[in-house]
Nucleic acid binder design. Sequence first.
DNA 1: CAAATTACCGAAAGCGCTTTCGGGAAGAGG
DNA 2: CCTCTTCCCGAAAGCGCTTTCGGTAATTTG
Lengths: 337, 337
Amino acid sequence: MGTIYDLAKKTGFSITTVSKALNNYKDVSDKTRAKILQAAAEMDYLPNAHAQSLSTKKSWAIGVMFSEANEVGMKHPFFNGIIESFRHATEEQGYDLIFASRNLRNRDMSYLEHFKHRAVDGIVVICSDRMDEQVQELMRSDIPIVVVDMDSANCSVVYSDNIEGARLAVNYLYELGHRKIAHIAGDETIDAGAARIKGYELAMQELDLPIRPGYLVNAGFFSVEEGKQAMERLLELDDQPTAVFVAGDQMAIGVIEAIHEHGLHVPNDISVIGYDDIEMIQYITPKLTTIRQDTDEIGEAAAELLLEQMTAKERLTERRVIPVRLVERASCAPVKQ
Amino acid sequence: MGTIYDLAKKTGFSITTVSKALNNYKDVSDKTRAKILQAAAEMDYLPNAHAQSLSTKKSWAIGVMFSEANEVGMKHPFFNGIIESFRHATEEQGYDLIFASRNLRNRDMSYLEHFKHRAVDGIVVICSDRMDEQVQELMRSDIPIVVVDMDSANCSVVYSDNIEGARLAVNYLYELGHRKIAHIAGDETIDAGAARIKGYELAMQELDLPIRPGYLVNAGFFSVEEGKQAMERLLELDDQPTAVFVAGDQMAIGVIEAIHEHGLHVPNDISVIGYDDIEMIQYITPKLTTIRQDTDEIGEAAAELLLEQMTAKERLTERRVIPVRLVERASCAPVKQ
DNA sequence: CAAATTACCGAAAGCGCTTTCGGGAAGAGG
DNA sequence: CCTCTTCCCGAAAGCGCTTTCGGTAATTTG
């Protein structure tokens, strides 16, 4: 591989000139630039990123903090879509993603510490738990940052329009004739969960529908199992809902399971509508009607907001709300008379 | 944050001593070490990774090359499980993962070049396409490397026991009374696809079963759609199979879809068994019986093989075959009389 | 043709850290 | 009391690169 010293020796120029040639400085003649570039090609020269970063204070790396309640990491069917799209968008600008461990040679350290250690140019956090002390710390720091799926005042955020999504869901069920609409919700400590609850309440109010006792059930952290349990509670009610708006697709899968196990049919007996539009719900029975969150757009928006800060070299506080839409499949039907 | 110079100034020792204290050299007294460590804590000192790497030639970073035919990246339901487990295993040892872009400040470069540029300590490649020139280049290099799900002579590899998996599947169907067993295969250019074909042929031969014309159909690159199309070809046959072994779960989903669309029932009319055991197949109807690949173990094994090389500081060539097992669910039934 | 630009190049310092090597002080041994 | 170890510490070089600043040589201007 070699260094600029080797290049200097080989071409007869100083390392200064070599470096300048490589970096397109204009105070080097075309002739010498050509010579140096050719020599570089011949010896497969590649600049050492660490040396460059050390001297320029720019690492071309973005730190990723990825964490969610269920500890599935990159297997998370919604978050991994965002990361993938984020990766594409930042890759185009020449940035690499680094997934930091929280372990620096036996000494354990926080994400912030690790990111400082690595001297990343920016941070993206994809984390549902707003209370996470690690996330708080990152948000307090002065490194450019963007957080996804969370609503915070003091840094750039991108999330999808949960209020509107919930409203879409409720209105859709309403138009199918449903009046007894329950909501299986995500935990309120998660912003997305809270927002969808709010959207549900708002929509119900707008439609002049009462939220009957027991119709708003907290199902925790969006897992299949929690969804199932929540639905079971709903099925114990004397006054059962005819439709349920579920705050996440995974939970909705559990919901449908519970309904089926009770000998009831989706959507003939109970309609269910989910949230997210993760891939697998196209393959279950019935195919799930849901509110689609656009992971591609979310990832791209996150990349944009971060790149903006990194080039401006200052922290900005912009919020981007990504529109959602309803995807009609087969899990909702007109209410039975 | 500060540097060791600041620490030296603050404590009155030389930067040499500071560095030594920080790195547990024994030629520094306990007293001075304590002073330095305390000062470091007070000023939130963190070593600069780039400076360290530059001087030690060790970056504590592992380059990840992740690529598959369908361009879904981290959304790939099987590969992302492997990455996640790999990440856990390497994280414990203090390594960070870096997802390199192929773009260095407008100049585009190969993964190998990028990894050299970043001076990673090792590389993990998760890529199904053996012919990929990028992968070839990586394997030819002298950086420690481990490749997953591929069979190569000249570097460490880990993959699961595809031959045995195929045999398990075929034997299982056989025991259910099936004799007309077809195989919807992955492309032969993908090692996993080729191995499962081989396992299928072997198992059929061992059972003295003929592979009837049209019973071995290439479905390409493991997508739902391709699986569906392949099954349609099978359904056009005069002599239809009673069971089909599908080389991947996603394809199996398409297969089941095709069967249902033809008005037939799984498993009553046709049994289908998949491969991988990705999460979503627990939620489809019927729940898919499959051959489970242990992504956790694969990821861990990959980490082990790579760490081994990185500490030995030389390239090794070890191969690890991870056992598979059959997971019985509801998509297979005894053959109809 | 002298003076003033312009074009091109290199010395040197600096980024933050590690590591070799040598030297002084303190303790051990005779 | 002198010598030999042992214990601590620091000077200095080096990792590979960038960037400022100054200095020739070549070119233009009046």
